[in-house]
Design a protein around this nucleic acid. Structure first.
Length: 276
DNA sequence: ACCCCTGTTCGGCG
DNA sequence: CCGCCGAACAGGGG
């Protein structure tokens, strides 16, 4: 489920726990979601620390913790531990009461006095990472510019496209180092709005098509953050997302039947009338 | 039983 | 070496 806007919403689900101490931790640390992560270090280091800040970069979430000196909350130099969570296909973060008993798929629970912060992921394609130390974790370094930022500009966009001339545009939109946070539904939404076939190779795109794709990318990200990202409400009715999974789904503009095929290894929907 | 899946990584191949 | 593609990961649902 989670792409950029949904991840932003899931990041904020743990906000009631900001400023509060972690009293206890339960982690199913041998499970696949903890691959490459030291579950014992996570449990020992987080216990007794406060959750002080969270951020998102693309589909990655970062939760930061520190131990003491409350007036310095939020200052990077006081951060002691970093918890990274990627939601994969089926992950979610949620708040539960402080007496929460984890079920089979509740892989990580951070207990606070008045609530618990839970990470659940049935399919386990998500990922929990942990780093103890003041410096930025290796797995958070070198992030690409956020699409909703001035650093994601036409120069960055065009140079990234130029590096993948032979790839279909849909495959390139799914590359997280160029389009952090874009996933299957957002890629289809962008290309439908830009009127470009998902299978079209980068080198066949005209300058005009590139420009329209650039603007559609920014627009879809901003508008979905205002709806899904804010309160998980639906994007506007005339978005492709409401049609793409339906049998008999139609183009919101022409009412033509959508086409479906596998492009770049993913189920893809497009309107044969608008997209060329 | 069989096939599908809003994600990412890795091995094989061109 | 570069880059694309399909498989694999793990589990639930249609």
């Amino acid at each position: 489920m989670p792409e950029l806007a949904e991840v932003e919403w899931f990041r904020r689900q743990w906000s009631p726990g900001l400023g509060h101490e972690i009293a206890d931790v339960k982690a199913h640390s041998r499970k696949y979601v903890f691959r490459g992560t030291d579950g014992d270090a996570l449990r020992q280091n987080l216990t007794g620390q406060k959750l002080v800040r969270s951020k998102r970069s693309g589909k990655q979430m970062l939760f930061e913790f520190f131990g003491d000196n409350p007036e310095m909350i939020g200052a990077r130099e006081n951060i002691r531990s970093s918890l990274g969570i990627h939601l994969g296909m089926t992950g979610k973060t949620h708040i539960e009461p402080s007496n929460f008993q984890p079920g089979k798929h509740d892989h990580l629970v951070l207990y606070q006095r008045d609530r618990s912060l839970v990470f659940t992921d049935p399919r386990q394609l998500g990922h929990v990472r942990f780093h103890h130390g003041r410096e930025e974790p290796d797995w958070w370094k070198g992030r690409s510019p956020e699409i909703d930022s001035s650093a994601f500009d036409r120069k960055f966009f065009n140079e990234f496209l130029d590096r993948h001339g032979n790839a279909p545009i849909k495959a390139v939109l799914l590359m997280q180092n160029g389009f952090p946070g874009i996933g299957n539904w957002m890629a289809d939404e962008i290309l439908w709005r830009a009127k470009v076939l998902p299978s079209k190779r980068i080198r066949k795109l005209t300058a005009h098509e590139r420009s329209v794709i650039f603007r559609a990318t920014k627009w879809v990200v901003r508008r979905s953050l205002e709806t899904l990202g804010k309160d998980f409400s639906d994007p506007p009715k005339n978005w492709l997302i409401h049609q793409k999974w339906k049998r008999g789904g139609i183009c919101p503009i022409h009412r033509a039947s959508l086409k479906h095929a596998n492009v770049a290894g993913r189920t893809t929907a497009w309107c044969p009338k608008c997209q060329k």
